[in-house]
Write a protein that binds this DNA or RNA. Structure first.
Lengths: 124, 124
DNA sequence: TTTATATATAACCATATAGTTAAATAACCA
DNA sequence: TGGTTATTTAACTATATGGTTATATATAAA
């Protein structure tokens, strides 16, 4: 699974990493500062690894400042994911019922060929 | 990682599963129909597993109709993910610069205590 | 009852993920 | 130089993931 979108979603599929992004959305922070709230639950190298996942997926960037590596959010990396999900928004918004009815008229042609024995038709 | 949001993002972190959702957004379909486009690349049980992941994460539901299990999208399951990402939208929209400036005035108080030797300050 | 279709499960394998501890590297300070 | 702080890397472990093939189950059809 190497595509960018999969990497983004995979990066978001961890509460620690989402918390890190939330923290960084309030401003840059060093690795130690990012790690502080998690050190009761995991070691510093564990946080370093999470940061690496976020960096690889383009959701944060790291710069250098003396012996510190300030981390900065790059929420642009969320655009792809946001756009993807956006395509499904209509499914949970109020116009859903009317839209579903419309879709049923649009997708009425059977997409399943070679059907022989009363197979269930798709949305009609 | 058991929380709902993590499960949703994890389910989305696979191109096959996203393609399945895309297919189901156009209407209900049986397991075989859902699987058809993927059978050059993987076996039917592999698709069954993907469907199970989508089902566990609440993104689809399966019903029964004779020997078929029509699958139906439940994009409501995307709401949580959409809402989470939405909080970061401001980071990639045009008002970003002005907003960042505003945030800097808001988050000016140092969140890093015990600092001794010219540690980098956070967004100020 | 037998056969065919649709789907699920079992057992297995390879790789990825998320954590650990210990050691290495890098920059600053005295 | 030597010591301290910040961060990364290495080596390892346990579990999860995504795939396989073979088998089982359920319903329908002949």
């Amino acid at each position: 699974m190497h595509d960018a979108l999969s990497q983004t979603f995979a990066a978001l599929a961890d509460p620690t990493r989402r918390a890190i992004l939330s923290r960084l959305s309030k401003g840059e922070a060093s690795v130690t500062d990012v790690a502080r709230p998690f050190l009761r639950d995991m070691s510093l190298p564990a946080v370093t690894k999470h940061l690496k996942v976020l960096e690889r997926s383009g959701l944060i960037t790291k710069t250098r400042q003396a012996q510190w590596r300030p981390c900065k959010i790059n929420a642009q990396g969320l655009r792809g994911a946001a756009d993807w999900i956006e395509d499904y928004r209509r499914f949970w918004e109020e116009s859903f019922d009317r839209l579903e009815a419309y879709l049923k008229t649009v997708t009425a042609k059977p997409a399943m060929k070679g059907r022989k024995r009363g197979k269930p038709k798709q949305a009609q």
